[in-house]
């Protein structure tokens, strides 16, 4: 019986292809099926907020520049990591991250909780030329970010796609994306008040790159770095030794 069956598979190459699919994909699908529902295992964090348009734009710069090649955003459940970087990362903290940037290599330190640890001024100086701030650093200089104005035009489209994918952006947020991005980096304008209204009072509204007249890619990236690990406080409540997130340095 088995013999007959095998001969038959072998006779036709299509049968053979089906056998490979059976082994790899049917087997694989039985195996990986739970992963499609794995979001069901993600913990609740009612205080979790979405990225503002400026932070999302900053995240997209982080993605564009391939920062994941040297920086992780995933603090493992190991004592030395928790002591070095802060409470270990929870799944919920990256639930709005597309793609996730957990990374696989730390040529530089983990960034999952970098938000609020350094001042904006430090970040800008560091990105302009890392060796001005950390002489031993081997990170590339990103001075061009400060020279490049941020593209605000398509931010509504970005938010709209995220909304389609299930990120809880309201229609109002989508509509005002460009204005909010501008407002977050240019304080003391009418646009700025809209940001706090829509994304919460705790949202950091300031001239991240130190220049309050225009919005650059530097503004966006620093805004993103400053919110990393600060979208929810869930991680601080979940650890064995509860603590509060540090007061942000401005």
């Amino acid at each position: 019986m088995a013999e007959l069956f095998h001969r038959k598979i072998e006779r036709s190459s299509i049968g053979f292809a089906i056998a490979i699919v059976a082994a790899a994909s049917v087997g694989g699908i039985i195996e990986i099926a739970p992963l499609f529902t794995i979001d069901g295992t993600v913990e609740e964090a009612p205080d979790m907020r979405v990225y503002t348009p400026l932070e999302l734009a900053g995240r997209n710069i982080y993605v564009r520049e391939g920062c994941y090649a040297c920086h992780s955003q995933m603090i493992r459940t190991l004592q030395d990591e928790v002591e070095r970087y802060g409470p270990y990362s929870l799944a919920v903290e990256s639930k709005y991250d597309r793609p996730m940037q957990w990374g696989s290599k730390r040529t530089g330190p983990d960034l999952a909780r970098i938000g609020g640890k350094y001042s904006d001024f430090w970040h800008v100086a560091h990105l302009m030329n890392p060796r001005d701030v950390v002489p031993e650093s081997n990170m590339p200089a990103y001075a061009y970010l400060a020279r490049t104005p941020l593209n605000l035009n398509d931010l509504s489209q970005h938010l709209a796609v995220q909304q389609t994918l299930g990120v809880p952006y309201t229609d109002e947020m989508v509509e005002n994306a460009a204005r909010d991005a501008y407002g977050q980096a240019v304080p003391d304008t009418d646009f700025a008040s809209g940001v706090s209204e829509r994304y919460g009072e705790a949202t950091q509204v300031r001239a991240f790159d130190g220049v309050a007249t225009q919005v650059t890619e530097m503004d966006a990236l620093v805004a993103y770095l400053q919110v990393l690990g600060r979208l929810t406080t869930a991680a601080y409540q979940n650890t064995a030794a509860p603590e509060l997130p540090p007061e942000p340095v401005e």
Binding site: V26, G27, I30, E31, A33, P34, F36, T37, I38, G40, T41
Partner: peptide, 17 residues
């Protein structure tokens, strides 16, 4: 079909398969 159902299915039938 929630996560636990699928996990149980995979852990048993995946092995038999």
């Amino acid at each position: 079909i929630d996560h636990n159902t699928l996990v149980a299915f995979s852990k048993s039938w995946g092995l038999f398969y």
